[in-house]
């Protein structure tokens, strides 16, 4: 596995590249386990409220455009694919391809945020944003408000993670582009790739739970 890896400078206290890479990946996976529980708190809330207000959730979900969610999933899956390829290129020290694929990933990520932003915008118009401006004609407006509370907090938290991911891609990409070293530093891209894939995975659960409850 180390034979193909591009050169990575050693950081104290490591003395071997493979050892350092293993440790970095292990650390990132632990962080991702942490993130699972961070989102997990909200997924738990979702489970409980969907159980106790399932009818209100069905009514509320009718106001979701499933095709936008589907499109977003498509965009995100593709960006996950380009990111995985980018990581592969980084490991082989192929800087040109790496930068190209990072750019595609970045554009797809930004498109995702754009679509999501459009949805948020239309929700404002329909008075579906929780808080004092919330208005919902249904049998259990409170339960429906909970649906949108969860929708905004969970997708909002996800968008925040996307935003951080985009910033990191930008930062590492520019750094690599202008660094005098010929090859890229693969470890940071592997770690970034793990993060990006994790953010994809979160969305894979958000999509059915918010867009496929009651599609029409």
């Amino acid at each position: 596995m180390t034979a193909e890896a591009a050169a990575e400078p050693l950081n104290f206290p490591f003395k071997e590249a493979a050892h350092q890479r293993e440790s970095a990946l292990f650390g990132m996976w632990i962080f991702l386990a942490t993130e699972v529980l961070f989102f997990g708190g909200m997924f738990t809330a979702y489970t409980v409220y969907r159980y106790s207000h399932w009818q209100a959730f069905q009514e509320a979900a009718r106001h979701q455009e499933w095709y936008l969610g589907c499109l977003n999933t498509l965009v995100l899956l593709t960006s996950g694919f380009t990111m995985a390829l980018a990581v592969e290129c980084a490991r082989r020290g192929n800087r040109g391809w790496l930068l190209g694929l990072l750019t595609i990933t970045w554009v797809l990520g930004a498109a995702f945020l754009g679509i999501e932003g459009y949805e948020y915008h239309s929700k404002f118009g329909e008075h579906l944003v929780p808080g004092s401006g919330f208005h919902f004609d249904g049998t259990d407006p409170g339960g429906s408000e909970l649906f949108f509370v969860l929708y905004f907090t969970m997708t909002g938290m996800h968008m925040f993670h996307m935003f951080v991911g985009l910033m990191l891609i930008l930062f590492f990409g520019v750094w690599t582009r202008f660094s005098p070293r010929e090859t890229a530093m693969p470890n940071r891209f592997e770690v970034l790739g793990l993060y990006w894939a994790f953010v994809d995975i979160v969305w894979l659960f958000l999509y059915p739970l918010f867009y496929l409850v009651h599609p029409r």
Binding site: Q55, E59, D140
Partner: peptide, 15 residues
């Protein structure tokens, strides 16, 4: 307070 939470069988949730 939340009539839609438990709709009895045979009735519409209109309350």
């Amino acid at each position: 307070l939340q009539p839609a939470k438990n709709v009895p069988a045979g009735y519409q949730p209109i309350m």
